[in-house]
Simulated assay, not measured.
Amino acid sequence: MSAKELFERIRQFDAYPKTLEDFRVKTFGGAAVTIISGLIMVILFVSEMNYYLTKEIHPELFVDTTRGQKLKINIDATFPKMPCAYLSIDAMDVSGEQQIDVDHHLLKQRIDNNGVAISETPEKPDLGDPSQKLVEVVTKPLDPARCESCYGAETEELKCCNTCENVREAYRKKGWAFNNPESIEQCNREGWTEKMKAQKDEGCKVYGYLEVNKVAGNFHFAPGKSFQQHHVHVHDLQAFGGQKFNLSHRINHLSFGQDYPGIVNPLDGLKLDAEQGRYKLWLTISFC
């Protein structure tokens, strides 16, 4: 069987025979129908594809019967007028648990007045702990077995204060104000005051997450070392010489629990600029 005969037999299966070119008539109406039909087919195809790729979210309300598990709070906030060395974050809830200077996987990024990062590597000290990563000005090696003074704030648990932060912690437990760091040898050795002055005109970006109990409570950002005194939550600002603080901020992202596609976080992108002379000293966010 020749190839021509094979093609002739295959053509017999054509269910849509074409008319001869001599009998075809092209009109303006036919062209319009063709164009409109093509557009409709494209629109239907795109809409169906979009519907197929869109995730459907079905909200459900149920009672959480788990115990001992923590709630994850994802945070990304920028404070253009608040230095990282000054900023602390605390969390407390109705069960009575209080977390002072929370550092649950939180990072601090120093930024300038334009929001540009000063250092590419973020720091991860305890928030509100300005004694970390200080420039050492020690002229001689320190004895690892030394036991330096806590300047009258010694306790049974903390008898030696070998760093500036140890002294601050001892003062915090005693409920004393840390208002004269220049007179403390450890702080002078670590350059605590110099760092406060160096970061005076900087800002801070805090991001990461913290974990809290699954009960009603709140967490807040505020300047100064926090401590408890007579069941009152206090922030010690004496060490900063009575200067004013501007807690203007932008919440880049704030969510609770695991993120999933399509979720809407109402506080994302919220920006608040404190007016001159009406500065807020804290930013509080409640959870439950």
Rank of each mutant, 00 (worst) to 15 (best):
M49E: 10
W192I: 08
S248Q: 01
A77P: 03
S248L: 04
F62W: 12
E165K: 14
I73C: 04
F227E: 02
F13L: 15
R11G: 15
G68D: 02
Y86A: 10
E275W: 02
C84D: 09
G208T: 03
L6G: 06
E169Q: 09
A177V: 15
K124W: 14
H220E: 08
G242W: 01
V33F: 02
G277D: 06
A91S: 12
Y86T: 01
L270T: 05
Y51H: 13
H235K: 13
L106R: 04
C187F: 05
F256N: 03
N252Y: 02
T66Q: 03
A198N: 09
K140H: 11
C84E: 04
H231S: 13
P223H: 07
L39P: 03
P141R: 08
R189A: 11
C204K: 04
Q238T: 15
V42L: 04
L283F: 14
N180I: 00
V42T: 01
E194Y: 02
E156K: 09
E60Q: 13
R168Q: 07
M1L: 10
G30H: 01
D112I: 10
L61Q: 12
G115T: 07
C160M: 04
C84Q: 08
G96R: 09
G208P: 07
D64W: 05
A239C: 05
A32C: 12
N188I: 07
S255W: 00
K140Q: 11
T121Y: 11
G30P: 00
Q228L: 11
T284G: 12
Y151W: 05
E48Q: 15
P122Q: 05
P83D: 12
Q186D: 03
I263K: 15
I100R: 12
I263C: 13
I35M: 08
C204W: 00
R250H: 14
L44P: 01
P181H: 00
D22T: 13
G38F: 04
T65A: 04
M92D: 10
V25S: 10
K280H: 13
E120F: 08
N213L: 09
G217H: 05
K214A: 03
L20N: 14
Q228D: 10
K140V: 01
D143L: 01
A153E: 02
P144L: 05
I43V: 13
F23Y: 06
L272G: 07
A239T: 07
R172F: 07
D112K: 13
F13Y: 15
K159L: 11
